[in-house]
Design a protein around this nucleic acid. Sequence first.
DNA 1: AACCCACATGAATTGAATTCACCTATAAGG
DNA 2: CCTTATAGGTGAATTCAATTCATGTGGGTT
Lengths: 299, 299
Amino acid sequence: MQHRVPLKAIQAFEAAARLSSFALAAEELFVTPSAVSHQIKLLEDQFGVQLFHRVHRAVVLTDSGRRYAEEVSAAFARIDLATRELGRTEKSDILTVHATPSFATQWLMPRLARFSSLNPDVDVRLNASTDTVDLVAETVDIDIRYGMKRLQPAGTMVLTFPPETIVPMCSPALMNGPHPIRTPDDLVHHTLIHSEVCLVGWRDWMRQHRKVKLDISRGLRFDRSFMALSAAVDGLGVCLESLLLAQRELETGRLVAPLGLDGPKVQGYTFNLLKARAELPKIRNFQDWLFGELEKASA
Amino acid sequence: MQHRVPLKAIQAFEAAARLSSFALAAEELFVTPSAVSHQIKLLEDQFGVQLFHRVHRAVVLTDSGRRYAEEVSAAFARIDLATRELGRTEKSDILTVHATPSFATQWLMPRLARFSSLNPDVDVRLNASTDTVDLVAETVDIDIRYGMKRLQPAGTMVLTFPPETIVPMCSPALMNGPHPIRTPDDLVHHTLIHSEVCLVGWRDWMRQHRKVKLDISRGLRFDRSFMALSAAVDGLGVCLESLLLAQRELETGRLVAPLGLDGPKVQGYTFNLLKARAELPKIRNFQDWLFGELEKASA
DNA sequence: AACCCACATGAATTGAATTCACCTATAAGG
DNA sequence: CCTTATAGGTGAATTCAATTCATGTGGGTT
């Protein structure tokens, strides 16, 4: 294996140098003193440099030996440390995903356990914030953003999510309450919940429903979709949101879409990553899994 | 040998990580790809951490693998460097001796070859200056000083030289010239050569020869003994110097002691070294050799 | 003077590392 | 679509580097 450096011999030398004794080195390495002696002789012969003075029944480093031992000890210490660190490692990969708070809360979090069980060796870390992150500078592998595409730094790859449908949603109690919601006109009796960042708002919805006259200046306003959805679940009014984010609430019946599941389609979310890292298995796997899940939902 | 860290396996891993290929690593290490595969599997199994992703017919580091490879590569690079440095080494020990210019020139230099041939593995470096050197701070193993003993820093060991005899000396031509020198009185016809740093000067010599009236204010003055001796060799006058420093000139006949080899004895030279390093073979050997040589001369 | 301990050394032994032979999977190419 | 070539995986066989064993050496210690 090692036609380069006689690692075994160096290891024996390092221990002997550190302990100033072949016998103690042998003990540390669980071999006989003879083995240590042989290895060190090998090293000395190979390089033609005496490393130890043999003085009576002790050994003393030569100057060359001391210099060499210092370097080699430091190097082994580093290897030891890194190896102990490695032994402490649980997962072999760390995948850091950054996403908008709404996508993280409404979509990712409930599904992440599935990804983790499919990829047990990946330790997923989820960061949620409205800030844009710098993929190059920060330890973020993937950033899931919402909204108009901005200019990306070179080396960034942007994948657009499949279209999501935006529809009015409310709690079942509200839909079947004193002012039932069956047609767009029924909305006039209800509080509108506005999501400020959503690409489609009530104003846009109204353009598709010219006959309905709603006062879009009234109602509740939130700057995060998950807050609008939460308000709708609590029966505070009717929100206009993406089916993507409401999927879980619709499945569990905490929200209903009183006017059906058709509506304007947008492609607001993007999957951002560095080209150079796109083929890393952990990233590729996450990407494939995520788009697979999105596919599944729309199918 | 290695119940601690599987060095062979780490070495295989390092090469594979650096080259991103088991096959190339195998080539570099002069083994078959199979050997590399086995070793890396060993490493992964031993620590229960996957180091490489096997993706089709290539390997890609995991995050853990990459972290580990960085550390391990750096450590091996250091070992490689130190080992190449070691291979370049000629002598296993470097002995740096500092001495007064006179002792270095007159006594040490001519004898150093003998020491070197007795100790072929020691690379002797001789520094000569009038400065006192700091044994702790500088890379000087031994300092040979002349003159009154000063306060030494803690940890310093001072060995005093055996007594040296101070006698008048001159060139044979001068002794046997127009004003032959047979008795102390004959000196009145000759130039006196003064060594300013010598512990015994003409003034002291006169105290032992009350009858002789010499004008000690006249003559040549040097601040280094070797210059005084050189002037005497050149026939410029009569110097009062240590037989120790003149030994070579007396043996070769370039100097003679017209009034005999008896005279005042002083112990001016000291052999200074650090206690902590006194038992280093190179130092001990030099000390033993030097005092042995001094002994031999006085015997 | 006898003993002891730490290291040295050559031959014998062993077992970790390597090779061998065969297998798998996939990208490229016809 | 099928073939081919390639990089790596794997278990058994093999080998040789590393280790042990037996013995020797020398200089302190009692």
